[in-house]
Design a protein around this nucleic acid. Structure first.
Lengths: 132, 132
DNA sequence: TTTGACCTTCCCATGATGGGAAGGTTTAGA
DNA sequence: TCTAAACCTTCCCATCATGGGAAGGTCAAA
């Protein structure tokens, strides 16, 4: 099938499929006589896998490794778990950071009248708070 | 003072200061005869403000507006509060999304032995889960 | 045969920086 | 006074994952 068909079946854009080939997540596609890329069910399967991993927030570098491990039936599950765990740790840190920021903003926002008056604790606190 | 001094006092890099000028967060700096940018205390003050807003996760577009409002003593606090609230809503959505992803990953990770065996629920679930 | 819907490669843009090159300026010390 | 270090300048490239679009070739149906 053509790139457009494969992309549609995987639920992503053809642009992305070419990109995934370029960065090595997908191996180079076979070509028709006229130069069109040719895909089969296995490729669609991989593309779906990539898309789902992406929805779990994995970076393309991580996904590249995951696809490699996924193709290899003899890999140790340890490797996969390590990638997932590392990713999870990063996520958890990010969540804590965002929660801290959100909490600060809620505090500031609550104390701002938010009307026609110019007085604004939000600006004042951004202005005078310590860095970080 | 020179750009290096101003940057140091604000706790950021000189690169960033030039960048902030380029995107209009900072107005164009005066120049010495030899073409060096010249800064004063007010500029350092603004740079610190920008850096703090950045630490609160505001985008440069939002910061640009905040700096504008901050300079204007007659602005309505409503405007500032709206920017902060909008930002907060975005943050909260992001947090929920990351928490959902983290929860899925924890679940997957817990069920993977993570040893020499090849069986790996993580890959299996990424493979067969529905999209999104 | 024409037309429209594909496909190809290539370049540019995003956001907020950092890196580094090539070249000019200033400052401090020998 | 000369020189070397430590600044400064602009300009271009890279990040990351993706979209937009141009210019041009291919294919399938009418």
């Amino acid at each position: 099938m053509t790139i457009g068909e494969a992309a549609k079946r995987a639920g992503i854009s053809a642009k992305r499929v070419r990109h995934y080939e370029e960065i090595g997540v997908l191996s180079k596609a076979a070509r028709s006589e006229s130069g069109y890329r040719i895909y089969d069910e296995t490729d669609v399967h991989i593309l779906r896998f990539v898309n789902r991993a992406r929805n779990l927030g994995f970076s393309m570098a991580e996904i590249k490794r995951l696809v490699g491990l996924w193709k290899n039936r003899r890999r140790a599950s340890r490797e996969v778990k390590k990638i997932a765990k590392d990713h999870l740790v990063g996520l958890e840190q990010k969540i804590i950071e965002l929660q801290s920021i959100a909490s600060t903003l809620r505090h500031l926002s609550d104390r701002c009248s938010g009307d026609d008056r110019p007085d604004c604790p939000i600006l004042q606190e951004i202005e005078f708070s310590s860095n970080k």
